[in-house]
Design a binder for these strands. Structure first.
Lengths: 151, 151
DNA sequence: GAAGATTGAGTCGTCAATCTTG
DNA sequence: CAAGATTGACGACTCAATCTTC
């Protein structure tokens, strides 16, 4: 058994922590807000725009899933009445996804659950110095990684 | 649009970075070592034991997947000739999963690809101080998170 | 023809039910 | 009966092919 590289161990811990947090997010969102983590993210992106609306393709890039995958997620949320497909007269090949009033209520609830989960599993275990160091390092990492695939 | 909690942004960056690294790992492992990240991890766990062998249930816990899920992954690797199912005479309800000689070659190759990917996407962008801080923080986080679900 | 969205087929995991062995 | 493994049904995403609109 070879002697593992130390930075490999660091990444492994980080990845385990990330997975644990994600699992907790998914569990709580499912139980308390009737939506998955991905569905939360989708609605969060919509709610962050002035018109609460985005094109399918832009949404897919932000969520980092394929257009085909997004079609299915959107189907589910439309079914639930939380978003709506709009095609504007000016360009009928684009589909705009819009957050409905019910969707707005849903994302607000989900956001609460999400924030609590992050607080309990993440923030609560770190002090302000940890958070600042982590912020700096994560930004640095992300900046390098996203040079390849800008969003 | 509410003002997001700062630690929420930190976690978001961290999660994005983790996702990007995982995607790169999966891509390179698939292309250069003919296996997925999960399959790599499975063989890595086996190769870390003295007999290169583990029970299904122990393997499932380490990989953090369900027993049912593991059965499928194992099926694939058995098919490929990289692992073997053994039932020992002393306890015929347990299944031991053993790394074969071909599997040993495969994991050694995969480990190389894995280490290169981590190096390029992770280590290379951080200095030794970053790494040490990250190691400390990740350990702290993980320790708290795993109090709930020990492995 | 190419951008944008959807569809069908396939892959890989979960969950709950079942089978087997101690 | 309970531990351990497998199976069937399913859910959610990817990929490649297709459809529609510019």
């Amino acid at each position: 058994v070879p002697n593992p590289n130390p930075s490999l161990l660091v990444w492994r811990s980080l990845h385990l922590a990330d997975t644990a947090v994600c699992n907790e997010l998914n569990t709580r969102l499912t139980d308390q807000a009737d939506c998955s983590l991905l569905e939360h993210d989708l609605m969060a992106w919509l709610s962050a725009t002035p018109q609460r609306r985005l094109r399918m393709i832009d949404l897919a890039m932000r969520l980092r899933i394929t257009p085909g995958g997004l079609t299915r997620v959107v189907d589910r949320l439309v079914e639930r009445g939380w978003i709506r497909r709009d095609t504007l007269a000016q360009n009928r090949r684009e589909v705009q996804v819009t957050l409905t009033e019910n969707g707005l209520r849903a994302i607000n609830k989900a956001r609460q659950v999400y924030a609590n989960a992050i607080n309990d599993t993440f923030t609560h275990h770190l002090n302000s110095q940890d958070l600042e160091q982590l912020r700096r390092i994560a930004s640095k990492l992300l900046q390098q990684l996203e040079l390849d695939q800008p969003c």
